[in-house]
Design a protein around this nucleic acid. Structure first.
Lengths: 187, 187
DNA sequence: TTGTAATAGTGATTTTTGTCACGCAGAAAA
DNA sequence: TTTTCTGCGTGACAAAAATCACTATTACAA
């Protein structure tokens, strides 16, 4: 199981066995069942998570009581309420399992130790962060340029597996349309 | 003028004079006039830019010929078509001046030299990237949770100076609404 | 087995937003 | 000065999407 993490990191920076042992010693493993919460809105955020297997969703609940999906996190993804994590404030979002999920957990303190102790890891996180930033920008662009139907098709093309794994109601919530509208688009 | 860059970096990592001299040697200065382009869609992207003074907009032109504003870049902001910059591919967006603007330019090669040559700088860019990522996520959230009027008010609250500096047509394009709708909202 | 959620489709209607058209004021250019 | 170009507001109408209501199906728990 730790091989998954090693392969993931080594796609960006090669590591010696010793280096990986050092890296790995900073993580803990946890298993969650479908519907369980890794992060609850209002509570503090101890960890960021690397998803080994399973599927998570990052949820924001607005004042009107509506639920919005900020992102899905599949295998090999990093996820957390990063704002709360990095600033050590209370979570404004929740992180919940859509499937039984195995994760590696990283305390902020250990994240920082990793970064200062091994420059390769700071480099790794920088690449990851840049990629994440560019991904978010693409999503913003799809809101700017596309209507609901086009956004739906883009999602379908980019993450076809989601359509087997996630109820359409949640896809609608990710796309920013009502479930009724999405239902009419896909028929 | 280089003091602006130093202060900006030192908000995150303190530097000795020698370190800053090393950092600064990787940048070049350029001045652009209102309406000039720093990046043109379709061309290669040599630099990322630190805005010393002035105002830029990052533009995406869609297939229908519509212009969308992906972001504004004010004083102390970093901007580029980062996807094209990091992957050394052709720009899909354009970067244009809304005001006369002074920038520090950083070649990708020098960005990498900075990161490997001085871990503090890799750390600096990691913090910046994380912040940028979280900012984008907030913008996504505003698309998910808010209608045009609310998005407009959020923008007004967060960046009041934009309303003095930028025509409303462009704010509409940033918010993802037509200029007519925005006009009706603000009256 | 029965009952209860969760999921998904669809009609009817309202709300929001976009599009097209026009006019006007001020800035910039000739 | 006159002319041209932007930016901005607004009316009329069309399109997109949300909301409300109801139904059917399936999965799952008691």
């Amino acid at each position: 199981m730790q091989e998954k993490l090693r392969e993931h990191i080594e796609k960006i920076v090669p590591l010696t066995d010793d280096e990986f042992a050092f890296v790995f010693s900073h993580f803990t493993i946890k298993n969650y069942k479908k519907r369980e919460f890794l992060i609850q809105e209002g509570e503090s955020v101890k960890y960021s998570y690397f998803v080994v297997s399973g599927l998570l969703m990052l949820i924001y609940n607005d004042e009107r009581g509506k639920q919005h999906i900020v992102s899905f996190a599949m295998e090999d993804w990093w996820e957390s309420d990063f704002l709360a994590y990095f600033t050590q404030t209370k979570a404004t979002m929740s992180l919940q399992c859509l499937e039984d999920t195995d994760v590696f957990c990283l305390l902020l303190e250990d994240y920082q130790k990793l970064c200062t102790g091994l420059q390769k890891m700071e480099h790794f996180f920088l690449i990851k962060s840049n990629n994440g930033h560019m991904g978010s920008q693409q999503r913003i662009l799809s809101f700017l340029t596309s209507n609901a139907k086009e956004r739906y098709e883009q999602l379908l093309k980019r993450y076809p597996s989601l359509f087997q794994r996630v109820p359409k109601t949640l896809l609608a919530s990710y796309l920013g349309v009502s479930r009724e509208t999405l239902s009419r688009l896909s028929s």
